[in-house]
Design a protein around this nucleic acid. Structure first.
Lengths: 117, 117
DNA sequence: GCTCTATATTGACGACTTTCGATTCAACCC
DNA sequence: GGGTTGAATCGAAAGTCGTCAATATAGAGC
């Protein structure tokens, strides 16, 4: 949803011009997905993993919440366009979509920092 | 709360290593503040303003929600460390804290992009 | 086919959010 | 002082979110 085509890289950040309502709505959905400690840790676990993929079977026991809750959070991260999952046999593997992270970082970067890029 | 001292600039991003619970909690609070369309547009209006400051009296009529609601959202943005406000006479002026935005952008930047910096 | 394991979905509950109208607080001006 | 205007706070209603236990689905292997 975000960072999946080249357009997202060309959009100006927050500080370039006031966000329109539609764009604000899109971005809010993604930031909302980041606004939970469990989801942030899930994303970080996946993003920091050498090889780029993590099995859900490794994620679930890393938290003190139930398996359905982890599944729910993974779904929200996926719907926000931050991660993607693939089933291989019995297991499901998730990976981050780095373009999405990069795109969000670009949105946040303040005006001064925009010139350097 | 974020980006207010030098430490925040040196912290590794999401993708460098799994986030600890405490850090994830801190960051989630900030991202949650960004997870609302009205707040994103408020932040963008303030950030994109030449001169760096915007009077609340200019913010309130730019939205279709009530004045108390705008005030509430500004409070949340301030508590997240994203903006700061100052009263001058009858009016209150808000400005963004660019270090906070820069810090958040750095947190998001994926591993590949981290090397370039 | 049946069974077992891994993941997803459902339904429910409490907690938190967003919003509002009413009120209060702060500062200016007469 | 009293009146006016800008902004914050309060209290409540409606909606959303995070979580769980229970259940369903997908695939592997016998």
């Amino acid at each position: 949803m975000l960072g999946q085509d080249a357009d997202d890289f060309c959009r100006p950040g927050l500080s370039a011009a006031p966000l329109g309502e539609d764009r604000a709505g899109e971005l809010a959905r993604v930031f909302k997905a980041l606004g939970d400690p469990v989801r942030l840790r899930l994303l970080s676990l996946i993003a920091s993993r050498q090889g780029g993929e993590v099995c859900v079977c490794e994620l679930t026991p890393a938290f003190e919440v139930s398996q359905p809750t982890i599944s729910h959070h993974l779904k929200l991260l996926r719907q926000a366009g931050l991660i993607d999952g693939e089933r291989r046999g019995t297991w499901v593997y998730y990976r981050v979509l780095p373009e999405a992270l990069e795109g969000l970082a670009a949105v946040l970067r303040p005006r001064a920092a925009e010139a350097e890029a």
